[in-house]
Design a protein around this nucleic acid. Structure first.
Ligand SMILES: [Mg+2]
Length: 344
DNA sequence: AAATCTAAACACG
DNA sequence: CGTGTTTAGATTT
């Protein structure tokens, strides 16, 4: 169902910024750019197609209305221009704040960072884990409640304090909770008579390379959420095509059951069975493992009969939740943007 | 490939 | 509704 044509040539990687309503992080827009992916209905892995072939392959498998040449899957060319300008502003702002970054007065001792991560540049801590550890280590009892961690952060990390002042604490507080729960070095100390627990740190609880087993998801491909990266304007695509005429593309095939492209391990799939998508009547192969969110898992063997009967029980009503199926499979998306952009 | 970030569903008192 | 647990897609390293 999904086929990714990554443009291979190093010199033609750039299509443009499409970053306005970054769907995946709507509250924290940031810059990105880079490879183009054509998600189409093509069913086989191809390599070395020309850009033109790739494009026509894409279009032949898609089903959409081209009547408005300025409108491509909800994004208007004019909006694309706005997007570029906004991104330039964002970049300038970031450079400015980087340059004018004299030491904040609330000095906290920070260990010499090994890596300069984005978070490091923004707030002085390498990751949320580091922030939480610091907060807990700074406490008398080496234990804090969630709310005390929030408070420590707001008192000691100007960046997050400012976010809170502007009513934008939802994301980082969520991230704190997420990290507390997810990472094994943070453990709970229950208290009698209190609703919430204390959190403590024990780094020896970290188990490196720990894997989680998981059953293969049983959901019809058509119901699976598609990439959330932004669609781009048709005009931009056409420009790209004409500018890169004849150059070779590399097609990467990936299983429709799994949407995180960069995590699919090639392993020999024990799950050859697989399903035909009842809508397209196409069949797919499945990778044996994927990882996401820092967790990795191996798929358990899927029983064919069970799988088939599951398929037969699929319900093709349009669901009303967020996981709206996208039968058209028509997204043309851009991911991983580098530092340049193309004018279109 | 692995780690991290952002977002959000969901449970529970 | 605040606290916790999880899943997941995107991004960074
Ligand atoms: Mg934990």
């Amino acid at each position: 169902m999904c086929k990714t044509f990554a443009i291979k040539d190093d010199d033609i990687t750039l299509l443009g910024y499409v970053n306005k309503n970054v769907k995946n992080t709507p509250n924290t827009p940031r810059i990105r750019a880079n490879t183009i992916s054509f998600h189409s209905d093509a069913s086989k892995s191809d390599t070395s197609k020309s850009v033109e072939e790739t494009y026509s392959d894409l279009m032949n498998n898609l089903n959409y209305n081209m009547e408005d040449p300025d409108d491509f899957f909800g994004i208007k060319l004019s909006d694309s221009m706005d997007i570029i300008e906004e991104n330039q502003e964002i970049q300038e702002d970031q450079e400015k704040s980087n340059n004018s970054n004299d030491k904040p007065e609330d000095e906290i001792t920070i260990e010499e960072p090994k890596k300069k991560t984005d978070l490091q540049k923004i707030c002085g801590f390498q990751s949320y884990q580091h922030i939480i550890e610091k907060a807990i280590y700074c406490s008398e009892e080496k234990m804090l409640t969630l709310n005390q961690i929030y408070n420590w952060v707001e008192e000691n990390v100007p960046y997050f304090r400012d976010l809170s002042k502007n009513n934008k604490s939802k994301c980082w507080k969520n991230a704190i909770r997420h990290n507390l729960s997810l990472h094994k070095q943070f453990y709970k100390v229950l208290r009698e008579g209190h609703r919430s627990c204390l959190w403590a740190v024990d780094k020896s609880r970290i188990i490196k390379g720990e894997k989680t087993k998981k059953a293969a998801p049983i959901l019809p491909p058509s119901f699976r959420q598609r990439s959330q990266t932004d669609p781009i304007s048709l005009k931009a695509v056409k420009n790209f095509i004409s500018e890169n005429s004849g150059k070779k593309t590399e097609a990467k095939f990936y299983d429709p059951l799994i949407s995180q492209i960069n995590s699919i391990s090639s392993g020999n799939s024990s799950v050859e069975i697989l399903p035909q998508d009842p809508i397209t009547n196409k069949s797919y192969s499945s990778p044996s493992s994927t990882s996401s969110s820092g967790l990795s898992w191996n798929y358990e063997q899927v029983n064919k009969d069970a799988y088939v009967s599951n398929i037969q029980s699929w319900n093709y009503e349009y669901p009303q939740n967020d996981y709206t199926p996208n039968y058209e499979s028509r997204f043309l998306s851009i991911t991983r943007m580098p530092s340049q952009h193309l004018d279109f």
